[in-house]
Structures are given as structure tokens and as C-alpha cells.
């Protein structure tokens, strides 16, 4: 068999080390999930950006709160704002300007739960997998928006 040059040997051994570092027991699942996520993407909704996250706020102040049990996040786009309190599996939200809306909570595996906001724009939702990425699609007559992905509450 053709012998390798020292440089080829080095390249292969570096590659071996690199591929070992990239091993993951669920690599195939991670890849499949990310590939599937492309199909759920719709480019028509207005994207609501994260403008406040209590978890990040704590970072800036540098305080340590071991008993952090809930997290506030606010998303904003031209059509609406959305304030969320995420407490474990439970999510309490309010959409502004107030008024009824349909809210679809999406998790990264493509599962969706539909809930309805009341006349004040308030809604509650419950997610099955509280730690993974989540996003919210809000539709009401005349406008629809989708939030950036955010994490659910993390277990400590």
C-alpha cells in the first residue's frame, strides 16, 4: 500500500483527534432535528426580537440568585410586544397592544401547542419539555409575528 508522507500522517492524526472531540452520543439526532427545523421556518412572519431577559440582566449586575425560579423575557417588533414569565413548565404572557390573539408555542422538535389570549392580551401555556428552545407565533387579524428562539427555564 502507498506509504504516507509525514505531513499526510500528521494531517490524518490531527483529523482523528478532531473527530474524536466532535463525537456526541446523539449526533445523528442533533443533525436530524436541525435539518427538520428548516421546514418549520416561514419567512412571512415579522420577527420579534428579544429586548429584555431577566437572566441576562442578572449577568450584568453580577448578582447570584441561587433560588431563581422564574424568568422574564420581552420580545418586540413593529406590530406588537410580548412579555413572558417562564416558570418551569408554565408560561404566563401578555401581548401588547391588548386584544385577543392566537398564540402557538413551538418547541424545537416541531411540537406546537395553541392557546388563546383574552381581551387584555393575556394567556397561559404549558410546555412539555421546559428546558429546550421555545418560540412563540402570535397571530391576530391584520398581523402576525414570530419571536426569536429562547430557552425555557433551566433546571439548576
Amino acid at each position: 500500500m502507498d506509504p504516507m508522507t509525514p505531513e499526510e500522517e500528521r494531517l490524518l492524526s490531527d483529523l482523528r483527534d478532531a473527530l474524536l472531540a466532535a463525537q456526541h452520543p446523539q449526533a445523528e439526532l442533533i443533525i436530524a432535528n436541525a435539518q427538520d427545523a428548516f421546514s418549520y421556518a416561514t419567512l412571512e412572519d415579522e420577527l420579534a426580537h428579544l429586548v429584555y431577559d431577566s437572566a441576562l440582566e442578572n449577568d450584568l449586575v453580577g448578582t447570584v440568585r441561587a433560588a431563581d425560579t422564574s424568568r422574564m423575557v420581552i420580545f418586540e417588533c413593529q406590530a406588537l410586544t410580548m412579555e413572558l414569565e417562564i416558570r418551569g413548565r408554565d408560561i404566563v404572557g401578555q401581548i401588547g397592544p391588548p386584544g385577543p390573539a392566537t398564540v402557538i408555542v413551538e418547541t424545537s422538535d416541531g411540537a406546537m401547542a395553541e392557546v388563546h389570549a383574552d381581551d387584555l392580551g393575556c394567556f397561559t401555556a404549558r410546555v412539555s419539555e421546559p428546558t429546550g428552545p421555545l418560540r412563540f407565533r402570535v397571530s391576530r387579524p391584520g398581523s402576525s409575528a414570530i419571536t426569536e428562539w429562547t430557552y425555557g427555564q433551566r433546571p439548576s
Binding site: A22, H24, L29, A37, A41, G132, P133, Y151
Partner: peptide
């Protein structure tokens, strides 16, 4: 995944990181 391991994240967290970055890219 290699980057997440470099940060000494668990396999579970590494999976979350990869998924989040891909979702960000779609957006």
C-alpha cells in the same frame, strides 16, 4: 459539538447549543 466540549459543556448542553445556533441561522 467540539466547541461545546471545549467549553466543557455536557452532552445535553452541547446538543442545546448546536440546536440553538442552527435555529438562529434559520432566522
Amino acid at each position: 459539538i467540539a466547541t461545546a466540549h471545549r467549553y466543557r459543556l455536557s452532552d445535553h448542553d452541547a446538543a442545546d447549543v448546536a440546536q440553538t445556533v442552527w435555529l438562529h441561522l434559520i432566522e
